[in-house]
């Protein structure tokens, strides 16, 4: 890494016929320094946060965590792990098709007035605080529709929150594919659906996946919208979509950290650890799958 950066800083330029001016060399060096500093600041923050979570979670990371349900101030996190997976996957199943459809529409037909209106509304939706979505879900679904605290209410609330992120990352990813690819597709007689599914989506997949993983991470890290919709349960989910509350990991972080017992604090940090590393696994898995599928497809880039 160091040699590459030295090279880009212009240290080896003696051998080149064209030597940049001193000012440009200094500018370059300063630029790279600033960039390294930016990265170091982020890495510092990252290690400080992760270090805090790992150190505090380490003493409780034992198999019982995955085998037992939450019981009072202790026990395990089996019910919360199950609930987090159900809620995240559920909200992704609802949000991904809608969000990606919106993103595809924006990138392929989004130049007109409708496109800008959609883009505009999508950006506004990002600014809705999650607690407001939660309260909306509470009034609309938990009380008005009589669903009580339930999986359905939690999933739909989370899905609304994820929509704009998925839409925006899909749009940006699709827009980055050169137009020549589309022309080639249409030139070979492909329909629009065919072109989108067989050519554009696979090409845009890495960036879309980044966006979706960000969305999953977000959905797993949220507490406020779920508190008033999914509720919380100390027990395993019984499969009902309505009438039954469900547990999730962020609840454990949020409320067990508020208890005066050391044991519940450790459980809270264990939950934070599981979420962070669960998402890490997801990202790794996603990348691995992507590399494989791209090898198979043969990327056109």
């Amino acid at each position: 890494m160091a040699t590459e950066i030295l090279e880009t800083m212009g240290i080896k330029t003696v051998e080149k016929r064209y030597a940049p001016s001193w000012r440009r060399q200094w500018g370059n060096a300063l630029g790279w320094l600033a960039i390294m500093a930016a990265f170091l600041i982020l890495a510092g923050a990252f290690f400080s946060i992760i270090g805090e979570v790992v150190v505090k979670a380490f003493p409780v990371l034992r198999p019982a965590l995955f085998a037992k349900i939450t019981n009072g101030i202790g026990g395990g996190l089996k019910n919360a792990i199950e609930g987090s997976l159900v809620l995240s996957l559920g909200s992704l199943l609802v949000a991904a098709p809608i969000g990606m459809a919106a993103g595809i529409y924006l990138s392929e037909h989004g130049a007109g007035r409708w496109g800008s209106a959609l883009r505009f509304l999508s950006d506004v939706l990002v600014g809705v605080p999650s607690i407001v979505l939660g309260y909306f879900g509470y009034i609309a679904m938990v009380i008005y529709l009589g669903w009580q605290f339930s999986v359905a209410a939690g999933v739909i609330t989370l899905a609304v929150m994820l929509l704009p992120y998925i839409a925006r990352s899909t749009e940006l990813a699709m827009a980055n594919i050169p137009n020549a690819v589309r022309e080639a597709g249409y030139g070979l007689g492909a329909g629009e659906g065919h072109l989108v599914f067989k050519v554009l989506l696979p090409g845009a997949a890495p960036a879309i996946m980044t966006g979706i993983f960000y969305a999953v991470a977000l959905s797993m890290g949220e507490t406020a919208p779920l508190l008033y919709t999914a509720g919380w349960s100390n027990y395993m989910w019984n499969g009902h979509m309505t009438q039954e509350p469900i547990g999730y990991l962020t609840y454990v972080i949020w409320s067990f950290i508020n208890e005066p017992f050391a044991e519940s604090h450790m459980l809270a940090f264990a939950a934070a650890f599981l979420i962070t590393f669960g998402v890490l696994m997801l990202i790794l898995l996603g990348r691995w799958m992507l590399v494989r599928s791209q090898r198979k497809l043969g990327a056109y880039r």
């Binding site: 946060i49 991470a217 949220e222 949020w254 962070t276």
Partner: peptide, 16 residues
């Protein structure tokens, strides 16, 4: 991965 993982940390943990 560092940078992506920063996105995966729940906001409560950021607060803590």
């Amino acid at each position: 991965l560092f940078v992506d993982l920063l996105a995966s940390i729940p906001s409560v943990v950021y607060g803590l």
